[in-house]
Every structure is written in C-alpha cells, then in structure tokens.
Design a protein around this nucleic acid. Structure first.
Lengths: 227, 227
DNA sequence: CGGTATCCCCCGCGATACTG
DNA sequence: CAGTATCGCGGGGGATACCG
C-alpha cells in the first residue's frame, strides 16, 4: 500500500482507509446489520456496484471485515471483524458532530427510499401488535412513480417493499419527505406534525394512536442541534 | 453546496466536510494549538499551500473555524469555534482505532521533521530543569542534509529548529527515525531502547537519566495495539 | 442476485511561479 | 510569511453493458 500522507500518526493511517469516498457509509450499513451486497446498496443507493465492491475489498485488506462465500452462487457475505465493529465508535462521534453542527438538509438529500430503509431498521417490533402489520407510506412530494413504499412487519422482521404487497394495509402514512425526515432526525417532535395534518395517518384508531411509539428514530435523534 | 451523498444522515453530512483529503490532519493541528498558516503546514508537511488554503476556507464555511486578520500583513489567524473544538471527539475515536488496528508503519511514513514537530507539542516542561534547555536530535538513517534537529525549551515554550541554534547543546539524542517513532507511538518502551544503545544519549548524567520523564509521547500511546 | 469489464470524462490535486 | 494564479495530469469514479 502506498502511503498517502507520509505520517505514522494513527489518525493519518486510519484516515487512509476511512476517509475514502463512501467508506463510512458502507461501514455504517455493515454495523447496522447488513451483510449482503445489495442490502448494503440499499443503504448507500448512489454508489456504483464497481466502487462498492472495491471498497469492500479495501475493508477486507484493512482487516475490518471478512468475506464468507455463500454456497448457492458466487456471492459473498460480508462479516465485520472486531476491528470493524469497533468502528462504531467512529461512526458515533462523527454522527453526533453531524447532528449538532452539519449543514441544513437540502432537496437533493431527501431520498425517500433511503428514509424508508433507515426506518425499517429502527422499528420497535416489541411494542407493535402481534401478527402481520403492513404500513403504507405515501410521500406526497416524491416523483409520481416511486412515492409509495410498504413496510411489512412479521415474525420479528421488517421488510421494505417498493411494489404493492398484496396484503391488506393496516396503517397508511401520508406526508412530505422533508417532514418525515426532520421528524426522523429528531429535529422536531412528531405529535404536532400529526396534529397539524402534515403527517396524515389512516387506519384503526389504536394503530394511529400508537404509531409514534413504534418509531425508534435515528440513532442520533436525541442529540440536540447546537446551531 | 452540492450534496455528495444524497442522504440527510448526519454521518453523511459530516463526511462531506470531514472526509476530504487532508481535512482531519488539519483539524488535528488546529486542535493541537496551531493558529498560523505555516504552523499548520509543519504538522501537515506534504499538503500544498493552495490546497491548505482551500481546506481552511471549507472549514470556515462549515463553521468549524473563524478567520481573524492579523494587523501586520494580509495574514490571518485561524481560530477554532465550538464546532471545531468538538471535533476533538472525532479525532480521538479515529486515532484510537488507528492505534489499535491500522497498518504497520512503512518507510515512507517516517518523516523525521514531523516526528520532531509532534514531540515539541508534547514535552512536559514542568518536569524539565529551569532555564534554557537545548536538545539535539540526530537521525542516523535520515538524508544527510536534514538529519539534525534542535528543540529549544525556554520560558515555557518549545521551539523547533532545523539549523544550528548557536546555543550550547545540553542533551544529544542519536537514533534511527523508526526507533524513536515506535517509542513515540507507544509501541515499545523507551528504556530498553536506551539500554541497548538503539537510542543513544549524550550529556550530563542527570539529563540522560531524566529524559524519558520529559516525554509525554503520542496522545494515543497508552492505547494498546489489538493486532 | 452479485458481481466484472470497459470506456471515458472530469476535477482534485500537485507542481511551479509569482505577489503584497 | 502567507498566500494567489495558472497549468497540466492521473486516476477516481460514474455510466453502461455484460456474465455466471
């Protein structure tokens, strides 16, 4: 490996790996539980397949993950090592700083698919009704052809769908992307948004009442903005 | 500002600024106490002036520092804001990870000038003899024309010189760069290195005896390697 | 689904020279 | 000392097509 910075400082050596484009977002996905190529991609939608593979190889070289062949195809599973799991600390400090000090959200940041993907990892199944529960999310300001998403909660797992599931919908959520994004980030409380109709809920009264309790929000939602 | 990642995740937003090349090393220098353009450069020797200025402007835009004109010339002083100072947490977590998991030191990392610059910030003046104290460091494996450095400790400050100071030398340290670098990083203890002659000291017996106590070592020296 | 292979463009960055 | 201006290139990475 070529030395980028010409320093033996631990910050410089770690930076060679960690500050490459997309790298921390990939590590974030892995630490959130993804192990498959296309699962990681859903959390980092704008990365190309070529580059994602390259980054995963670099993480392997750096000792942050190991590849595990899956018998079926030629596919691999990507499993974090101790070194990779310890990167959670780095993700934590950067995310905290971002939550406190980073720039405002702009239009181009508001990817509805990513928001749903983030939500599916942070639903508190233990407080949700038993059995299958299907949520439909309708983003009123998203492109006409992908503004609908479904979350299917069943058997302690949550799946994200971008096409109708065939199941009956238990709760429909209708809102602008930005509204739900800001609520998700913890930048504003959810109840006034529901009360004002900026987040509209349709479904049984009990489900509408309890919906706010299902959301665990972003990991950094409890950190207050400093600006 | 253009959105790089298309996500409103705090890690992504912070990464836009912090994972640019050289950025964390510049922030490290600022958090270590540098405020002047060329002081920062001594801690990040391989960056070009053009790019350093660009990065400082980006840190200003991000709210991590403010510029303060110096009345004399058209020069500026760069002062961290609260946001910039809070980046110490990020530096800490990355440095810890680097100390534990980063690759081994290679030849190209062993910049002797950088090592001396790092040392000058981490000398414990309070336990050093009163009055002026001049150290000469001779790197036996460095290029013939810059292998000698001097540290002048006086009035609670430490200056780094690359040309003879004219002062009498109180203690001479003679070693390979790699040896002192590994000692500095905390990868090996100093006393065996002195005992074996890999670090040679010349000067009054008291100074030779106490020299190890003056060194505060790298901030991450106490963190054990995990590999 | 989980990648490769290829092409090509842009721009990030280094190098050098110059200025107040 | 603390920058600015200009040039030029290398390769990082996006887009697209293809494959097992």
């Amino acid at each position: 490996m070529k030395s980028d910075y010409g320093q033996f400082c631990p910050i410089a050596l770690a930076s060679e790996v960690l500050t490459q484009k997309w790298m921390l977002l990939i590590v974030r996905e892995l630490n959130a539980g993804s192990t498959r190529f296309n699962d990681i991609r859903r959390g980092v939608p704008r990365i190309s397949a070529t580059l994602l593979k390259q980054r995963l190889d670099q993480l392997e070289d750096a000792g942050a993950l190991i590849r595990k062949p899956i018998n079926k195809n030629h596919a691999d599973e990507y499993i974090l090592t101790d070194a990779g799991r310890e990167l959670k600390t780095v993700l934590g400090s950067i995310g905290e700083w971002g939550q406190r000090w980073a720039r405002d959200i702009e239009k181009d940041d508001l990817d509805p698919g990513w928001l749903v993907w983030a939500m599916h990892r942070r639903l508190d199944i233990s407080v949700m009704p038993a059995g299958r529960l299907v949520l439909e999310i309708d983003f009123t300001d998203a492109p006409r052809n992908h503004h609908l998403f479904w979350l299917v909660c069943e058997n302690s797992t949550v799946d994200v769908c971008t096409k109708p599931t065939g199941f009956e919908i238990d709760l429909r959520i209708c809102t602008r992307v930005q509204t739900l994004a800001e609520v998700w980030r913890g930048l504003r409380p959810i109840r006034p948004e529901i009360a004002s109709g900026r987040i509209q809920l349709e479904g049984q009264a009990i489900l509408k009442r309890d919906f706010p309790k299902w959301l665990l929000y972003s990991v950094f939602a409890k950190t207050k903005q400093a600006r």
